[in-house]
Each structure stands twice: as structure tokens, then as C-alpha cells.
Design a binder for these strands. Sequence first.
RNA 1: GGUGAGGUGGCUGAGUGGUCGAAAGCAGCGCUUUGCUAAAGCGCCGUAGUCCAAAAGGCUACCGAGGGUUCGAAUCCCUCCCUCACCGCCA
Length: 423
Amino acid sequence: MLDIRFLREQPDIAKSRLATRADGHSETIDAILAIDVRRRAAETRLQTLQGERNRLSKEIGKLRSQKQDTAALEEEVKSHAATMQELTLETDALTKEQTDLLLILPNLPQAEVPVGREAADNPLVREFGEKPVIENARDHVAIAESLGLIDPDRGAKISGSGFAVYTGAGARLERAILNFLLDLHTREHGYTEVSPPFLVKRECMVGTGQLPKFEEDMYGVDGGGLFLVPTAEVPVTNLHREEIVSSSQFPIKYAAYTPCFRREAGSAGRETRGLIRMHQFDKVELVKICAPEDSRAELESLTQNAERVLHILGLHYRVIELCTGDMGFGAAKTYDIEVWAAGQNAYLEVSSCTNFEDFQSRRMNLRYKAEDGKNRFCHTLNGSGTALARLYVAILESGQQPDGSVNLPPALHSYFGAEKISK
RNA sequence: GGUGAGGUGGCUGAGUGGUCGAAAGCAGCGCUUUGCUAAAGCGCCGUAGUCCAAAAGGCUACCGAGGGUUCGAAUCCCUCCCUCACCGCCA
């Protein structure tokens, strides 16, 4: 959520920076400001009447203690009741209207984010390793089926398309990768492990920005009161919602595993083969909460922490920076990490590392006590460290051998309990 | 799920209809003094919104949340949420 004062004072700057986004409605800003004027006018009138009522009520109390008649004053207060009622309804309605619009307004890209319209405009930042040379590379579906690692048919049978069942060594590999990721980030990168609920309240989804705009992508339960988490970002970032945290805790760094549940509405047919786009997938998420002046550096180190996963696993990857037109709703700046999947002959996004600045913290009223004693909004960041399913794809496709087996990266041997998977 | 108790400022904790935004203590900040790994005295010390060109200042709202009663609500009534205790059920 953007600062209403900023919009009020510098609407042109807000509009021009928002205009570089794919979803940047400047007309929404005009609507917000129009409501703002009406809202404040109504509020001021209401407050004046409230002040008058308070003054008269005190007067009544004083007179009564002196046993004097107060009927006239009481009538005067009563005479404003209807107007106050109207003004209360008006300010409430205008406040809600304004908030609703503020909640669907995306974040401002940082000034240096490259301006562009779509994914093709995203500049390459760096890459690691090289594409492995594999003759007649098979894709992970063929590999996994021949080795009995996943059972897509039965996944579809029990839950529908977009759900996978991992079986035998396949399930074990999933668990091995998970443990490797959590150990790496907690032991070597200094993140505190969190195991949060997989269901969160609506207000948490609003806090991190999934709602109200993207409800059709989420799984709601309990009549819309609770949602299955689409990423651990939601429960973990909201851990400190409505708090004033101490800056001595900064940077707060959490690593959390959760399954992620997404409807993927509108993505049918795009990259849907095998495990690449699922309604449920596992992910280890990294979340940081820090002071505004540190968030740029924290994004760099966060991204490096996520990259290290692929580095250690020896997988070829590249880091790209999202252009303004390709950034997510709440993002001020985002790096995507894409791993090479030999069987797909394509890069797969396994991590999206984002600095939200104070966009989320405003929504969840997450503040810290600054050195000058003032309460300020924190900056929040998160990045996958990494998504499991696509990493799984890359491990299978990169490790595949001519005899049909899969060699696992050395870092996973002890977690998995073997060096390779074969029939 | 049932019964009971309770939710007040960073913390502890008073306050049951009218100068209560809220006593007191602790913590924090500032000053003074003595001096040295601290003590004492004094003062300051909630959040948000809004008004004014701005500062100073004013006003409004907030005592778990939302309604209600009243000229006036932290205080009375209703609903809900949460915490604790015990009971029931249960992985």
C-alpha cells in the first residue's frame, strides 16, 4: 500500500513511476485523491460536532453536580445527533472506499529498475555454470515414471489435475531436498527456521498483498475466513503484523518450509507439463524484515543465499532482473533465479527474490522503533530458497544417465541415503 | 464442545457513568548533584487521524473487536475473538 500523504503531495511522481508497470493505473490515484478531499472534509465536520458534544456534556456534568437544570443543553446536544450519524456513515463509507482503492494499487518500482513491458525485456544479471551436454535428454516425467518416483495418474485421481503423488525413492528425494535446503539456510546463512500454519486469516493475505486483488488464485476455506497459504511468505511475514519490533533484532531472517497452494487460474496449458506448475508444491521460503536503509543490500544477500542452493547442487542457472512491466504487484524490485532444465531445454523459475520496501508493512502495520524514537514502517523482503518441484525437475533432468538412472548431486547423498536413483 | 476467570499505555497494575487518555510503580529519555562499573533529585515520556501555508498549537478517535443504552461510556447491556484454569473429546 502506498502512503496516502505521498500520493496527496506528489501525485505526478507516483503516476509516472506507476505508469512503467503493466498494471499501473494512474486513474486510480485520481480517484483516491478525489475521495480523500471529500473524506477529510466530512471528517473535519464530524470532529467539530464531536468536540461540541464533548464540551456540552462536560458542562452538563458540572451543572448537575450543582443541582442546576440541564434540559436546554441536553436538547442542544440531541439536536446534532442526526447530523453526526450521517457524517459518521459518510466518513466510514469514504474511508472504506479509499482503502479499497489503495489496496489494489501496486507498488512503485525502484527508480533504477529497468523499464520494460514483458519478460523478454528482463536483463540478465549473471549466470553460473553451463548447460550440461546430454544426448537425447528425457524430461523429468519420463525419468520419474520409469524410476517410479511420481504417480501423476493417481494424483489426478484423488485430487485432480495439477496434483502429484511422490512415491518411494521419489518421496524420499523430496524430503531429502527439503532437509538440505532448510539446513543450508539455517546453518550457513543465519536464518531462523519457522514452521508456520498452512492456513491463514484473510487479513494476512491482505497484508502481504495477495488479497483483495488476486482472490481467484487462492484456495479459501471456511467460508472465505481462512486461506491455504500460496507461499510461506504469507504466514511468515505476517508473524510480526501489527507489531513494533525492535531495530536491535534487524535484520530478522526466517526460513520456512510450507506446501504452497495455488489455483493457477488462467495458466492452463502454460508450462503445465509434469511437475512444473502444480496446485500444490513444496517450497522453502526466505523472509527478511529490516530497516529501510538496509533493504537494498538485504535483497542482494537474499538473492545470493538462494543462488547458493543451485551453486552447491552444481546446477546451471541464471539471474535476471525483472523489468517494470513484469514485476509482481507488491514488488519494488525483483530478481528471478532460473535453473536450467535439460529435458525441457528451458530455464525454470525456481526463485523470485523481492524487495517490497514498506508496501507490505503498511498493509500489516508492521513498524519498528527508529533511533530518533519515531515508529517507522519496516521493509520486508522474501525469496524462494527455493521452490522444490522445479528444483526436483532440474535435478532429475540434469542428473540423468544413459542407462536410465539419475546421479544425485553430492550434497544430497547423505540426505537421500544414496548417490543415485536407479531401477 | 462445556463451565469459570480475565483481556487497560513497552511492562506491572489502579480505575464500575461526568475535568480519565487514563493513578502508581518499573523500564526509557533529558537535566542536576555525588562520583564510578552506580545512586539520588527534578522533568519528560502512548498511537493514529485531522485542522492551520508551516511551526507552535488546537481538535477527534483509540482501555481485545463490533454493536447498543445515555446529554456523556474504560466503566452499563448484547454479540464475537483471544488468554488462563478445570471438565469433556481426541491425533
